[in-house]
Design a protein around this nucleic acid. Structure first.
Lengths: 256, 256
DNA sequence: ACGCATTTGTTCGTATGTATT
DNA sequence: TAATACATACGAACAAATGCG
């Protein structure tokens, strides 16, 4: 962990490997995060400390951290320090949960675990998760139910695939016992932190089995959301296909 | 337009109106943009010029511009200057057009104008566009067709509502004649620049009329995209409801 | 309750590098 | 080549928020 080359080196401009100092610092910080030197929720060293470690000015460290903060990898808190982002905070949850009630109320969802089993990854799953042929994977299926007064109405049917190796030890009991966001469990128990995801949305007709789970008619229109989530270094670590019942809910998106 | 108070004033800390200098500069720049002092595609004054005008350091101007650049309101080009963002650039178009072919090819869409008429805004439209009762509005309906080899397949049915006053002079002929993105027409001809939008997505069943336009069966699942687009100062200036046929296309979204 | 140390936030100034014309 | 504009980097000072003694 004691990096032999803690000093960042600015290559001569014009050489192919050239990149600004603050970008090199950013890369080094990301490496430390990936290596688990600082865990989600913990504070990283102060700007002056990092400046001393890397032998650069405080302003240079600042610019590196600034970018990582806008990337939602770090969170700055004036007077306290800079912290590794975590999925425990409310703000972070809503970045990945885009389904909202039409009436504008706060989403209130209950989980119901349907399945959690370990198996060899199917070809398509292996391809998207960049796994070798026959490598293990974990499949999780669950239902999310909206709480409306005393009633519970199913709104999301999730089919989730995770690489087996980093998620060794993930069981139905573990999932069942967990209170809080699933992504928070992943980072707390398996040191896998989701920072980015790509989604493909489609309208599809409900199949018989899915319709039964979601309590809708067969052939009813459902919103299909296929997600590929990435951790540090753009490594894909989750494949998720969700079916959303959008009668009293909608998927909210901000274009900017 | 000759601002009487070109000098930014830092209120005493603790007073309610206090905000950092660079935020004040940002607000002043946004006012100038809103007033049309610099038009989309044009260069704004250089950082040193702006620093002199506002009596602040170059670094402070720089920070204001930095934020506006990440907001996609301005575009920096090293060696050339800083420019007002425009919808003419390819990159900007894809920020607002999220429908992509499943096969990964570049989207190639043809427009077919169905309707363009001026009328009093219906109550719901008026509410969302913050119009007074009975104020004029323009309704545009159009079809987008995917070009697949020699075939044309309808994929999007758009129903667009615009406030009548800023869009005085918008006619079917004007729309028909325009080559390029509609948002580019809006900023070039009507000085209305879209910078942000909120969308609500749902899966719905195709009605008889919509199904006919999109060449799908009645009841087929369609992706409904309801968009409210904003210009400078968070003023809503477009309401759009699109129906997407997502059999060979999908809506792409990036979570970060 | 007060003050002090720590940490990030803001602002200034200066110098040099890189891209464009 | 020279001038201009943005990009990077350093240093310094003070403000604001936090936590601790």
């Amino acid at each position: 962990m004691a990096a032999p080359a803690a000093t960042a080196v600015a290559a001569l401009p014009g050489t192919p490997a050239f990149s600004p100092l603050y970008q090199q610092i950013k890369a080094l910080l990301l490496q430390s995060l990936q290596a688990g030197e600082w865990l989600p929720g913990q504070a990283i060293p102060s700007e002056v400390e990092l400046a001393a470690r890397f032998r650069v000015s405080q302003g240079t460290v600042r610019k590196a951290i600034d970018e990582m903060a806008t990337d939602n990898v770090l969170v700055r808190r004036q007077g306290k320090g800079t912290f590794v982002a975590t999925h425990a905070e409310r703000a972070t949850q809503f970045r990945f949960l885009r389904l909202l009630p039409d009436d504008g109320s706060a989403p209130q969802l209950q989980r119901r675990l349907l399945e959690c089993r370990r198996m060899r990854a199917p070809a398509e799953v292996a391809r998207l998760l960049a796994l070798g042929a026959g490598e293990p994977a974990v499949q999780v299926r669950r239902l999310l139910l909206a709480v409306q007064g005393t009633e519970l109405r199913p709104v999301v049917l999730d089919d989730i695939w995770l690489p087996g190796t980093p998620f060794k030890g993930l069981t139905a009991e573990r999932l069942q016992a967990w209170r809080g966001p699933m992504y928070r469990l992943f980072e707390a128990e398996f040191n896998v932190h989701m920072i980015r995801a790509e989604e493909k949305l489609r309208a599809v007709a409900a199949g018989a089995a899915d319709a039964a789970q979601l309590a809708v008619a067969e052939g009813a229109p459902l919103l299909s959301v296929e997600r590929l989530a990435y951790t540090y270094g753009d490594r894909p670590v989750e494949l998720r296909r969700g079916l959303y019942h959008t009668e009293a809910h909608h998927y909210r998106n901000e274009l900017s």
